[in-house]
């Protein structure tokens, strides 16, 4: 385990050092990318100045909203759909093809319909995430062993109690996987939409900084988004691993 950690740290450190060297040597010019240590300093400055906090807050609020909507809708839909075989089989081709569809292509359409605001961005984040949650939920429910449901019946539990005490706890790791997916898609949807067309938000600020050659804002913001998504993803992954380890699965 320690060797794995060492390897990972080595890879990241190596890549950063390589970038640093390339930047300092002038192979990568200053207009393209400032050296990593510069980006780090700029990021700290940016966070201390606090000027962009409203933008960051707005983007994060939209990400959380898209996540919450996709997650709750997905879990409820998945649970209900699990009970209706025909409906589920009919929707299967849609689920299988869904992630091949460029959902962003609908963004212009949404702007035309809802106007240029938070609505279309949240909707894109929601649409990207919701199907992943439904599919993961169905997958988890499919794996609940019949014997556990029978045990609940023998303990004279009704459908609701069975769901709360048996089915959902069994699906807990799947619920976490679904949360990871929904969160990742919420980020992609919201930031991407802000990027394509918006009047505020982190994605918009990045685009704005880009057009003004303001690398001191652009790079720290990009790094901040990447760090946020990696950290959130990491926390959920860690939690998921704990649950699985308790069940003797890796």
């Amino acid at each position: 385990m320690r060797r794995v950690r060492l390897y990972q740290v080595g890879v990241i450190a190596g890549l950063l050092l390589l970038l640093e060297a390339l930047c300092l040597a002038g192979v990568i010019d200053k207009i393209t990318m400032p050296p990593p240590h510069r980006i780090a300093v700029d990021l700290v400055k940016l966070l201390l100045a606090g000027k962009l906090y409203p933008e960051i807050g707005k983007s994060l609020a939209n990400v959380l909203l898209a996540f919450g909507l996709a997650y709750s809708t997905g879990i409820v839909t998945g649970t209900v759909l699990h009970g209706y075989r025909t409906a589920r089989e009919t929707l299967d081709p849609l689920f299988a093809t869904y992630y091949a569809i460029p959902v962003f292509a609908f963004y212009p359409l949404f702007i035309v319909i809802f106007g240029l605001g938070d609505g279309p961005q949240v909707l894109i984040g929601f649409l990207l995430g919701v199907v992943a949650v439904i599919v993961t939920m169905l997958n988890g429910l499919d794996r609940v062993p019949r014997v556990l449901r029978k045990t609940a019946s023998i303990c004279r539990m009704g459908p609701f109690e069975t769901a709360v005490h048996v089915t959902l706890p069994f699906c807990a790791p799947y619920l976490l996987t679904a949360a990871k997916l929904a969160l990742a898609y919420a980020f992609i949807g919201v930031i991407g939409s802000e990027f394509i067309m918006a009047r505020s938000g982190m994605g918009y600020e990045i685009g704005y900084a880009y057009t003004n050659f303001d690398n001191a804002t652009m790079y720290p913001l990009i790094v901040l988004i990447l760090l946020l998504s990696i950290v959130m993803n990491g926390v959920l992954t860690h939690w998921e691993k704990l649950l699985l380890a308790r069940r003797g699965q890796r």
């Binding site: 062993p145 029978k150 023998i154 069994f170 069940r247 003797g248």
Partner: peptide, 13 residues
């Protein structure tokens, strides 16, 4: 009535 099944019916969580 109590039932013990053949399959592993322990709740893993």
């Amino acid at each position: 009535i109590g039932v013990v099944f053949q399959e592993d019916a322990c709740f893993p969580w």
